[in-house]
Computed example of a mutant assay.
Amino acid sequence: MMPDTEIANARFVPGTVHKRDIFSETISGTLEGVPGFPVVLRKLDGVPFYVRPIAWFLARKEIRGLRAVQGIDGTPVLVRVDKTGLLRSWTQGTPLQLAKPTDPAWYRDAKRLLRQMRRAGVTHNDIAKPQNWLMTPDGRAAVIDFQLASVHRRRGVLFRTMAREDLRHLLKQKRAYAPELLTASEHRMLATKALPARIWMATGKRLYNFITRRLMNWSDGEGTEDRISRDGPALIAALTADPRVTGVALHTYALPAKGVGLYAFVECDLPVAALRALAPEPRPELIQPVKSLPRTAEGAVREDALNLIATNRLDELEMLQADDPVLAAALRPIVAGRLNLTDRVLRR
């Protein structure tokens, strides 16, 4: 689907900031006068001048990749490109690390998506990250974030190798969330990295991590897993050491300035001041005591719902709980006391 003139020329109305890093700011919103077509802007006009060439290099890769996959179900629609950045359609769905699909149909559809991208000569090159895979509301597969995508004119060895790595990274997601579905041939593929991938992991990946994480204080993990994995274990241990704390859920959100904040939902009857006293440095930016964390019938914490609260995505939260009155009742006091309101205060 290519956007028509009305969509391509409509004014962008910003809504929620989802991510800020040194290379861009990602903001979802709507188009004025175009109902039912949510969009997302990768905003580049505010990046520091010293990384602007890299930011636009990545943006041009994304633009080229998006143009090549237009019409493939499960990929975003490129709306327009201007000096502000690039505007694409918003893909409704739950990130894989929250959806944790176990239905074989999702993995079949994900393979279909990779096949169609391969026929278009496109490799994604960044789907090892589960947040770049989505499960749509109807259970289909979708991919986002084409910043590292490649469009290949020739179907040579490099293309075949990169396409194979895309598939192998999908199988890694399958191994993480539905290992019982893996076939014998998929197990063999997982056990065998392509030679370029092995070379990259041994050399270039280490240099890349040093430059981005140490020198630039930036992570390619969407600002989520790195912050949680770095600060989370000590924080959870300190909070749950108090017998009055019966559960902790950690999520991240975009700060009003550059960076990522940590949001802690703590199941207890303690005041925030007491929880801050228990928390080690660096403390989370936001700590919300809740009487009860939302859970499934099996007792698992509803991380998907808490993630939407932490990032202030209330429109999606309404859809999530529309047909689940039990979940809606559990979330009502948490939503009423939510602490992240700043991600909707946008720089004009």
Rank of each mutant, 00 (worst) to 15 (best):
G121E: 07
R60W: 09
G232K: 10
V272F: 05
E316A: 09
R338C: 00
D21N: 15
A310K: 11
A264K: 08
V47Y: 04
D109W: 00
G71Q: 12
P95E: 12
A120S: 09
Q97G: 01
P3H: 07
D242R: 02
G15M: 07
A305E: 06
V51R: 01
L331A: 07
P256V: 05
D242C: 01
I72A: 07
R60P: 00
R175A: 08
G299Y: 13
G93S: 02
R230T: 10
D231A: 14
A277E: 15
R20Q: 13
G299Q: 11
K43H: 06
A249Q: 11
L317V: 07
A330W: 08
G46N: 06
K193S: 02
E32A: 12
A141V: 02
L278A: 10
V81K: 15
D145N: 07
T224H: 15
Q173E: 13
I199R: 03
V345K: 15
I63P: 13
E303C: 02
R154D: 04
L255M: 04
F23C: 06
P101N: 01
A149D: 09
L250E: 06
P284H: 15
R313C: 02
A305H: 13
A110F: 01
A274R: 15
L270I: 01
K19S: 13
L346Q: 12
L207I: 01
N9S: 15
R80M: 14
L98N: 13
S292D: 13
P280A: 08
R348A: 06
L181C: 02
F37Q: 09
Y50K: 08
T5E: 07
R115T: 03
A310S: 13
L158C: 06
Y208S: 04
A328L: 11
A305V: 09
G93Y: 06
L235F: 12
D324E: 07
L286A: 13
D231I: 08
E186F: 00
R188H: 06
V345E: 14
R313A: 08
G204S: 03
T102Y: 00
A142Q: 06
V122Y: 12
D45I: 04
V47W: 02
M189W: 06
A297M: 05
G93N: 03
V81E: 15
L182A: 00
G15Q: 09
P101M: 00
E186C: 00
K174A: 00
P137D: 04
I22Y: 03
D304L: 03
T192N: 09
E298Y: 06
P38F: 07
V122H: 12
L341G: 10
R348L: 03
L87H: 12
D242V: 01
R302E: 10
G29S: 05
L239F: 09
S28K: 14
R244W: 10
F210Q: 02
L317T: 05
L207S: 00
L31R: 13
L278I: 10
G223P: 02
E186M: 01
T212H: 08
E222K: 08
D73L: 11
G74D: 10
L293Y: 13
G65V: 12
T192Q: 07
I54V: 12
L314P: 01
P333K: 04
L98D: 09
R206D: 03
G36Q: 07
M319A: 15
F210R: 13
